[in-house]
Structures are given as structure tokens and as C-alpha cells.
């Protein structure tokens, strides 16, 4: 029984550490992927490539790293600004999704920052919560 408990907690620890290291690839961010398909893929496309000069890419986007703290607010409240993504200018409008919870946003950000070759690390819930408190 004891050895069963140890192996169980070992397995648990392993999966948690895998989750944080992103060791399981795309599968790690299933919930984020589901949310992405529902709320974002129509515009940014399934493979995150965007659309011409109308919708910026998320795959390989340098914007993600440079604006790490702003991303939670962008997802919830949208963005209508003149921005540069990989040197290309975009002056369009993105609607936010006000109904996204802090957990939704964390899952979404972890998915887009670690998919399609992106390796931008993970967000913690506390970080997202703090960022959301500072949205204008």
C-alpha cells in the first residue's frame, strides 16, 4: 500500500513538473487549445499564421515576448492600436473576450506562447491576475 502511495505521488509530481516544463508538447495546453479554437482561430487561423496585413501572426510573433505583461489585458479587452509584429505594421481592431476568466486567460496564453514553435515560457495564474488588475 505504501509503495502504491509513493508511486502515485511520484507520478503526480512527474506530471506536474512535465506540465510546467512543457515537456508534453502541445498536449500540455489542451484547455488553452480548446479556448483558442473557440475564440481566436477564426482570425489568427488554426496554425497561428494570421492573414496578410489584416491579422498579425501569433506563430513566431516577437510581440508576445516584448509585451508579455500586456497580453492578459489584450485577450480580455481587445486591441486597437498601431503595432509592429516582426517588423510589419498593423493598425487594425481586435475585439476582446470580456467573459474570459483569469484561468482561461492563463491557459490561452500558455497555449499560444508554447505552440507552433513558440517557446516563450509559461504564465502563472498570479502573474495573469496581477496584470489584469493593471488594465486600463
Amino acid at each position: 500500500m505504501n509503495s502504491f502511495k509513493t508511486s502515485l505521488s511520484l507520478a503526480l509530481a512527474l506530471s506536474v513538473s512535465l506540465w510546467f516544463s512543457g515537456g508534453c508538447g502541445q498536449n500540455t495546453f489542451r484547455e488553452g487549445e480548446r479556448l483558442y479554437k473557440t475564440h481566436c482561430a477564426n482570425c489568427h487561423m488554426d496554425d497561428g499564421i494570421g492573414l496578410s496585413a489584416l491579422i498579425p501572426p501569433l506563430a513566431g510573433s516577437d510581440y508576445l515576448n516584448k509585451h508579455r505583461e500586456q497580453l492578459p489585458c489584450i485577450l480580455r479587452y481587445g486591441l486597437s492600436d498601431t503595432i509592429f509584429v516582426n517588423g510589419k505594421m498593423y493598425a487594425e481592431k481586435m475585439p476582446g473576450v470580456p467573459t474570459l476568466s483569469e484561468i482561461h486567460i492563463t491557459n490561452l496564453l500558455n497555449f499560444i506562447n508554447n505552440s507552433w514553435g513558440n517557446r516563450n515560457g509559461v504564465y502563472r495564474l498570479e502573474e495573469v491576475r496581477a496584470a489584469l488588475e493593471k488594465c486600463q
Binding site: N42, C43, M45, L51, L54
Partner: peptide
């Protein structure tokens, strides 16, 4: 906001 970009 929905399907148009994909159709485009």
C-alpha cells in the same frame, strides 16, 4: 469577428 477571415 467570426468565420470571415477563414473564408478570406
Amino acid at each position: 469577428p467570426t468565420i470571415c477571415p477563414k473564408v478570406k
